[in-house]
Amino acid sequence: MINKKIIKSAFESMLFVWGDPLDVKSAAEIFNLNWKDAYDYFKELQAEYEKEGRGIVIREVNKSFQFVTRYENNEYIEKLCTPVKEKKLSQSALEVLAIIAYKQPVTKVEIDSIRGIKCDRVIEGLIKKDLIIELGRSTGIGRPILYGTTSTFLKNFGFESLNDLPHIEDIGNVMHVEQELDDLDNQQISINFDGQ
């Protein structure tokens, strides 16, 4: 017969995987135990967790057992699980992102030229949000950095690939870019960020 320590260890693993209250009868059948022995093993496990003051406790529910978090820790769990604030990208960030998406690989000078305004800070912000990355360097004078979009960009905007991007006739025409972005913004596209 399997010793008690192994059975209790298995019960602990079963509780973790099962999630819902685990019926003592079902657990007992796995080991060909009688119901009373299985119940006693669960009670021992429950007492061990309680004695150690663990963050996870074993709760008995109608002669079944389940892992739950310790009630005193609810405040901390709520803080951790508070939904991330939904933030929309600014108009300038959307413009730069669209230019990069359609022209990639593209340099900052090319982006500045299309927008008619410097975009260093916007690019930094998009990199921090993992929407764009550095793809390498151009072979042009000064070997400027080339930028492109990330898989996070595709995921957050609901695209499977760059082929899914809406068609824009002339990316160099900022008016067209802004109109396309306005259309996207009107569709309530928003992205979850980690507080940045």
Rank of each mutant, 00 (worst) to 15 (best):
E95T: 13
G158L: 02
V68D: 15
L146N: 07
I111T: 09
F153L: 00
V61T: 08
R143G: 02
T82R: 13
C81S: 13
E160W: 04
K63Y: 06
D120A: 14
G116S: 03
I77Q: 10
V122A: 08
L135R: 14
L162R: 13
Y76H: 11
N74Y: 12
K103M: 04
T150E: 03
Q104A: 06
N156C: 07
I123W: 06
I123N: 06
K103P: 00
N73G: 06
E86T: 14
T82P: 01
I123C: 08
N74K: 13
K128G: 10
Q104T: 01
T149C: 11
T82H: 08
L135D: 04
T149G: 05
R143A: 15
I133A: 14
K63M: 07
L165W: 07
S92G: 03
E95Y: 11
P105C: 00
T82G: 00
P83Y: 08
L97R: 05
R70H: 10
A98I: 03
L94S: 06
I141L: 15
C81Q: 10
R70C: 03
I117L: 09
G125A: 14
V122L: 11
E75R: 09
V109C: 00
H167R: 13
G142H: 14
S138Q: 04
N163K: 15
Y76M: 07
Y76I: 15
E124W: 07
E78T: 11
I100Y: 02
T82L: 07
K118D: 07
K128L: 10
I145K: 15
G158Q: 00
E75L: 08
K63T: 04
S151D: 13
S64Y: 01
I127K: 15
I123K: 07
E78N: 14
N62W: 01
V68S: 11
V68K: 09
S113C: 01
G158C: 07
I100L: 02
V96I: 14
R59K: 15
S151V: 07
L126Y: 05
L162Y: 10
E72L: 11
L146I: 08
F67M: 12
G142W: 08
Y71T: 14
L126D: 04
K103E: 05
K128W: 02
K118L: 11
L94Q: 12
V61Y: 06
I114K: 00
N163V: 08
Q91A: 07
F153Q: 00
L146W: 05
D130T: 08
E60F: 00
R143S: 15
I117G: 02
D164P: 09
E75A: 05
R115I: 11
F153H: 02
K87T: 12
A101I: 01
E95K: 02
Q66F: 02
T107V: 00
S138L: 09
P83S: 11
E110H: 01
G116A: 03
A93P: 03
I58D: 09
K155V: 00
N156W: 04
R70F: 02
K85L: 12
E124H: 12
E95G: 07
D164Y: 01
V122S: 09
V109Q: 11
D130V: 08
E60W: 00
L131A: 01
K63N: 10
I99K: 01
K79P: 00
